[in-house]
Design a binder for these strands. Sequence first.
DNA 1: TTATTATATTGCAATATTACGATATAACAA
DNA 2: TTGTTATATCGTAATATTGCAATATAATAA
Lengths: 107, 107
Amino acid sequence: MGASKADFFSEEQNEIASLFKAISHPARVAIIEYLLKVDSCICGDIVNELPLAQPTVSQHLKELKNANIIKGNIEGTAICYCLNPDTMQKLENYFSGISKELKTKCC
Amino acid sequence: MGASKADFFSEEQNEIASLFKAISHPARVAIIEYLLKVDSCICGDIVNELPLAQPTVSQHLKELKNANIIKGNIEGTAICYCLNPDTMQKLENYFSGISKELKTKCC
DNA sequence: TTATTATATTGCAATATTACGATATAACAA
DNA sequence: TTGTTATATCGTAATATTGCAATATAATAA
């Protein structure tokens, strides 16, 4: 079906999965890494940086914003985007939690 | 088109994206968390744990295995699956690297 | 050998994602 | 007002993912 059996899984599992889905596309990874590189928050520079049309970039930004991975502030005509440190921390914590619990013995 | 413009993006960006794609589905998050919970590595127990048919679970396991997120060892008729600590470490490092570089000042 | 158990693969329908041209909106400048 | 710039949304075609029934494979047991 391709549909989500999301109802069965826990809130947390669905939330984590959708966070990762937001960064599961190379264009969105590239956006994140670009936002990390440039100190000042940028906007339509991303369109010049990526090999994608403006509507496509806008769509990717929307997904990242919906997932709370980036924030966007209006600055006159432009929009200033930047990474959301809270979400980055949350993602780091998820894996450090796994590392801590993970037994070394395995099959 | 839905197709990947993967050729433009860097090797690293494509690799990171496909790692996250592997854990971007609640069923696969649930599998990871179940593998973390049970000390001993399991196999078809996952089918009983999840609300999905055996072929569907098998498909999800295959994706996790292809992404190097889990390992599978044959044990007689069964297959023993477990998390791959190296990949978990890699994912943790990716986000701790971001946290380290991330400026607090933002828009 | 046949039967059983555990897992994988195939084929396909339902659904979701990706990309972009065309168009809309919103803020500012002249 | 009109024009310009920056971004968002709509509509849609191409492609990818998800889920499962049916079937195949592989290891062991009887």
